Amino acid sequence: MTDTILETRKLRKEFNGFVAVSDVDLSVQRGTIHAVIGPNGAGKTTLFNLLTHFLKPTTGVTIFNGREITGLPPHRIADLGIVRSFQISSVFPHLTALENVRIAVQRRNGVGRNFWTSERWLTKFNSEACGYLADVGLEKFADTQAVELSYGRKRSLEIATTLALDPELMLLDEPTQGMGHEDVARITELIRKVSANRTILMVEHNLGVVANLSDTITVMQRGAILAEGDYDHVSRHPEVIEAYMGGGGHA
């Protein structure tokens, strides 16, 4: 049995009269992979920004683990166990892979913002950071600067830093965007692997990845939920077919 880890009620965001997210009721079940899909402009990333409070909702509420988190600043939401990645890789380019992950480990241990901590003292976090690199297949790149990694490996590094924060709920925003077939396959298997002990909510454009990974799919169009269910259900939904194939996705 699963239970609800994240819920929104009538979540809405307007920009000068334009409705980007329209009264969305979303329910994410604990221990599942839940995908949000939709044509360009459907409101998917705006929804993510509302969940993590990078944007303030016009109306509506967000509930995490039974607690309303609407209005909390992004760092408090992260502290509660919701951590997100972004469409564009957000690693520190001139730090090594190990240093990138170690920063996340430090933050979880309460020393992430202490700029006066000695490098020698921080090495005590190296072993744990190396473990997260191994989880994503980057142990051989521990001493490589992030800027020198391929795009797919940068995304793997970002997932490693997300894991190092030990989230209950991982929000992945377009994790395979811009990748070739080999990197897509690698990231797909990585997401499957890291989902074993946590919940994943992801925005993803690659329907093959969505079909392969997702327990539940929410389809958005023009800021609203168009359909929801497993892949077989939503892929046969007439309005979903129209949205993707009939030119109805220009929100």
Rank of each mutant, 00 (worst) to 15 (best):
G31S: 13
Y244M: 05
A146C: 11
T2Y: 10
R30E: 15
A104K: 06
M220G: 01
N65S: 07
A146E: 10
L207S: 09
V210F: 12
M245R: 00
V61N: 12
D215P: 08
H75Q: 12
E128N: 05
D143N: 14
Y244H: 10
T123V: 07
E148G: 07
H181D: 12
V83Q: 03
M170T: 11
F125C: 05
F141K: 15
T96R: 12
I191L: 06
I5G: 11
G229D: 09
L55W: 02
Y231N: 14
K140T: 13
E119S: 10
N212S: 15
T218N: 09
R153H: 15
D143P: 00
E228F: 08
I159T: 07
V209D: 10
I225A: 08
G152P: 11
P57R: 05
A97R: 03
T52A: 04
L133S: 08
R76W: 00
S85G: 12
L95T: 13
G110W: 14
V234C: 12
R155T: 07
I159H: 05
T216C: 07
P57W: 04
I200M: 11
L26F: 10
E148C: 11
T2A: 14
L201Q: 10
G131L: 04
Q106H: 15
G180E: 09
A146W: 03
M179P: 04
G223K: 00
G38E: 05
K44P: 07
T176M: 12
T52W: 06
I82Y: 05
L122R: 13
P238M: 09
D232G: 12
L55A: 12
K10L: 13
W116P: 01
P238I: 04
S118M: 00
P74C: 01
G31C: 09
Q29H: 13
G247A: 09
N65R: 12
E239Y: 02
I69G: 07
K124L: 02
V203M: 09
L226P: 13
N49V: 07
I159E: 06
V194A: 03
K13C: 07
L169T: 06
Q29L: 14
T216E: 13
R67K: 13
P175T: 08
R155S: 10
M202D: 06
K56F: 09
I191Q: 02
D232S: 14
G38K: 07
V21E: 11
T216P: 01
D232W: 01
S27E: 15
S235N: 11
A42N: 05
R236S: 15
D143R: 14
H233V: 15
L165G: 02
M245E: 01
L11P: 04
G71M: 04
A211N: 14
D143W: 07
S22Y: 06
Y132E: 09
T62P: 02
F125M: 04
K10M: 11
T58A: 00
R67D: 08
P39I: 08
R84S: 04
T52M: 09
H233C: 10
T123E: 13
W121N: 08
G152K: 11
L171Q: 03
H237F: 05
I225H: 02
V219F: 07
T32K: 15
N126G: 02
